[in-house]
């Protein structure tokens, strides 16, 4: 959400941005790491961030979700029940989080495996065929970065140079050779969005 605040001491207005995001899918899809890369990129740009995973006894194959908040000001609750953006990668998460998007907010989902597509008319909805594309290009390891690219196209919260730094910081050194693939995937994702419901 972007809100306007009058600066009391100077004669201009400043924009204070806070974006509250839920990323949800199966464990193993890279949900948590997508959130971490976004959050670390925010840190690199000196924004306030929080990354709050659902944690529990379930592991690979179970559902996983993470709440990521990127803001220009101090973050209040790291745990939320309404979101500016939902990034959804499986049906269970669609059932749970479509209704949690704030009116006027954004829902991005990969239609692979989705049987009940989102139907709300009061939010912006885009699909992104990331898993298909990742399979075609042999980039299945960076599937999550294709999705992140789609999100960043619509909400450019963090500048590309800081995404690069965020990747360097989030990935262990032995995976740094994969950074170019990650960045390529982000670029591919920016071109894959299909608008399904766009508000004026």
């Amino acid at each position: 959400m972007t809100c306007l605040q009058a600066d009391r001491f100077h004669n201009f207005t400043i924009y204070i941005m806070t974006e509250e995001i839920i990323i949800a899918g199966f464990g193993g899809q890279g949900v948590l790491s997508m959130g971490k890369i976004l959050a670390y990129s925010g840190v690199m740009q000196n924004k306030e961030v929080s990354w709050m995973p659902s944690y529990g006894p379930e592991m690979r194959g179970g559902t996983a979700n993470v709440t990521v908040i990127v803001s220009d000001e101090r973050i209040s609750s790291p745990i939320l029940n309404a979101f500016d953006t939902a990034i959804i990668l499986n049906q269970q998460s669609m059932d749970k989080f479509e209704k949690a998007v704030k009116p006027g907010g954004l829902l991005i989902y990969d239609p692979n495996g989705i049987t009940r597509h989102p139907s709300r008319k009061d939010i912006n909805i885009y699909s992104i065929d990331a898993s298909d594309e990742a399979g075609k290009l042999g980039l299945s390891k960076v599937f999550n970065m294709i999705v992140l690219g789609g999100f960043l196209k619509l909400k450019p919260l963090v500048a590309p140079e800081f995404i690069h730094k965020g990747l360097e910081k989030s990935l262990p050194a032995r995976h740094h050779k994969l950074i170019p693939d990650n960045e390529k995937a982000i670029e591919i994702g920016k071109g894959l969005l299909k608008p399904l419901n766009v508000l004026n």
Partner: peptide
């Protein structure tokens, strides 16, 4: 608590 322990922030 578990949330402050498990969450990441700057």
């Amino acid at each position: 608590d578990g949330a402050i322990g498990q969450m990441m922030e700057k």
